[in-house]
Nucleic acid binder design. Structure first.
Ligand SMILES: Nc1nc2c(ncn2[C@H]2C[C@H](O)[C@@H](COP(=O)(O)OP(=O)(O)OP(=O)(O)O)O2)c(=O)[nH]1
Ligand SMILES: [Mg+2]
Ligand SMILES: [Mg+2]
Ligand SMILES: [Zn+2]
Length: 566
DNA sequence: GCCGTTTTCGGCCCGACTGTTTTCAGTCG
């Protein structure tokens, strides 16, 4: 629903731009971006809260809220249909080609009668376009390449896949002399669950780094190259944007490059109202730079607290920072143990021993082994769990780290659990997770989970929505009921840190926090290497405004045990 | 169309790169 609505508003924006309407295109685009990034379905908001709450979405006012409601109720937006009649069909489509905007699209239509991307490609290949005023042969080449790029433009990359790639490029850049600092910005630094491109900021006193960058072996194609920035496509079709700044502008440049776009625009607007100007080169009063060396300085001089990168989504963080009411977020180093791991006794790759040693090496105080429990393949039954407990007790004697005896049980279609209560009673930690029945309607799905949460041995609801990023939609749930029940029963909601899960996601975690829930960040590691995915979960938690006190595995072993009621 | 520590009317982010270009539009970050 959100995706579709965003498309509608982007299209309205394009048509209004063709019609040379002022400001509205930007307004519609801002609303479209907000809706696209919402993380909660607008239909959900409208149905559970109402039309007025739609106007709480940044950039959505009365008029756009009405159109959202119209779309939810009728499946169409009349305004768009009317607008479409006023411009030739296909012109909007052509605007999606890189290098073709409203004006050039209209010109192609008016003078050559071209009215689709397909016709545009034909015309370019047959050299019909060069010769038209302000089009040359080079434009034909660019059009053909642009259409090519559109066709194979890949999906966004998972954060967990992008991070190691970025780290590698950054370490290469740091080897080059003159590079004082190199750091990722953009969605990567904000720890968004998917990444459109990799943005890297380099501090250097000379701009020669650009040449070094565009000549790196991984580069396939240079899209743009100037004195201070460059964009390239790598051999595995990932776009990398590089920006070079001098040390005195490091903070303001990092602020700019970290975004997000709407956060930046809002900050710049605040600067204007204070008679200042904010850009990547600094915060200026007249021509005097009054901040720019550090990000903190920039935020402070704008009258607000420093805002952590993960919060920079333009969803209320600026207002909170102005009131100095930002939460103190959970730190990446604050995690004291992993509460969701598997061994080769179920479907993992490593032994209990190896997992415990790896966890200890990470500095953890405790580790829960939570193999799958149940009667099906790659699950441990009650008797096998009993054996696992014995083994853990034996291993515990030679390890400093506390190994918690855990199990991850499946929630059945009727809300029953895959392991008997008499066996659950003997465990330190019980995770209950949905691994089947993803398509149930909302009432059945919600009822099933509520019943599972009523089991008195369950401690954690594992990957609550069961979504897989870009693969599987979240199960249909009345989440508010789930959150309320979890809170009432003293059950933590998991933030599962698998690359393609990150479930709960950040916006849902933020809502659950409002209700007063507690959280467990778990890696769901099936190998010792995957224990390192914890940072993805912490990043997600930070994006959800969570603090140390909200997270059960950021507490000492004693506190955790008390909380687990064991 | 949206929005409010100067505003409910009158503003709306700012700069780099390309090439359509020699003073600027288009696009992108
Ligand atoms: N002030 C300002 N900054 C922008 C604008 N567009 C982008 N930026 C800044 C903020 C972005 O986070 C940063 C990098 O741009 P990207 O296009 O790579 O976006 P981002 O990384 O946020 O998301 P992505 O995952 O790449 O789609 O540049 C803009 O229109 N104005
Ligand atoms: Mg980016
Ligand atoms: Mg970028
Ligand atoms: Zn698991």
């Amino acid at each position: 629903m959100n995706k579709k609505l965003a498309e509608i508003f982007y299209e309205i924006a394009d048509i209004l731009e063709i019609k040379k309407v002022q400001w509205k295109p930007a307004a519609y685009r801002k609303a479209a971006r907000s809706i696209e990034n919402l993380g909660e379905d607008v239909k959900e908001i409208y149905e559970t809260k109402g039309e007025k709450d739609l106007e709480e979405i940044p950039g959505v006012g009365e008029a756009i809220a009405k159109k959202i409601v119209e779309y939810i109720e009728t499946g169409r937006v009349k305004h768009l249909e009317e607008l479409k009649k006023t411009i030739p069909k296909g012109v909007v489509e052509m605007m999606a080609v890189p290098g073709i905007g409203a004006k050039r699209a209209m010109k192609l239509y008016n003078e050559l009668g071209i009215s689709s991307v397909k016709e545009l490609e034909e015309a370019a290949k047959n050299h019909k376009i060069a010769g038209l005023e302000s089009f040359k042969e080079k434009s034909e080449e660019n059009i053909i390449e642009g259409i090519e790029f559109m066709k194979k433009r890949g999906k966004r990359i998972l954060l967990g896949m992008a991070l190691p790639i970025a780290r590698k490029i950054i370490s290469e850049l740091k080897k080059r002399e003159g590079v004082k600092e190199a750091i990722a910005g953009g969605s990567l630094r904000r720890m968004e669950e998917t990444i459109g491109d990799i943005d890297i900021l380099v501090v250097a006193s000379d701009y020669g780094v650009v040449n070094f960058f565009t000549k790196m072996p991984i580069v396939k194609k240079v899209l743009a190259k100037g004195d201070t920035k460059s964009s390239v496509i790598t051999k595995d079709d990932i776009q990398i944007d590089l920006r070079i700044v001098k040390p005195e502008a490091f903070g303001s440049a990092l602020q700019y490059f970290t975004g997000n776009k709407d956060h930046n625009i809002k900050l710049r607007d605040i600067a204007i109202k204070k008679n200042m100007k904010l850009s990547e080169y600094g915060l200026f009063k007249g021509s005097r730079q009054i901040a720019g060396k550090t990000e903190e300085e920039v935020y402070n001089r704008l009258g607000m607290e420093y805002i952590e990168p993960e919060l920079r989504t333009e969803t209320g963080e600026i207002e909170a920072a102005l009131k100095k009411k930002l939460p103190k977020l959970i730190g990446y180093e604050a995690i004291k143990g992993d509460l969701h791991t598997h061994t080769k006794l179920s479907d993992g790759k490593n032994s209990i021993d190896e997992m415990a040693a790896a966890a200890e090496k990470k500095g953890y105080k405790y580790l829960a082994i939570t193999d799958h429990g149940g009667k099906t393949i790659q699950h441990l039954n009650e008797r096998q769990l009993e054996q696992e407990i014995k083994e853990i007790e034996k291993i515990s004697e030679k390890q400093d780290i506390e190994i918690l005896k855990g199990v991850e049980v499946d929630i059945g279609a009727d809300g029953s659990l895959s392991i008997k209560d008499s066996a659950l009673e003997k465990m330190d930690v019980v995770i209950a997770s949905v691994h089947s029945g993803f398509k149930f309607p909302e009432t059945k799905q919600t009822g099933r989970l509520l019943k599972a949460l009523d089991n008195k041995y369950v401690n954690i609801l594992g990957h609550p929505t069961a979504r897989l990023i870009q693969e599987r939609e979240p199960i249909k749930l009345d989440l508010e009921k789930i959150y309320e029940k979890a809170k009432e029963r003293g059950i933590a909601l998991e933030i599962n840190s698998s690359l393609d899960r990150l479930d709960l996601n950040s916006s849902k975690a933020r809502e659950a926090l409002e209700i007063g829930c507690k959280f467990a960040i778990g890696t769901d590691a099936h190998t010792i290497e995957q224990l390192n995915h914890m940072g993805l979960g912490v990043g997600t938690a930070r994006r959800g405004w969570l603090r140390k006190e909200d997270i059960i595995n950021a507490q000492s072993l004693n506190k955790l045990k008390k909380w687990l009621g064991r």
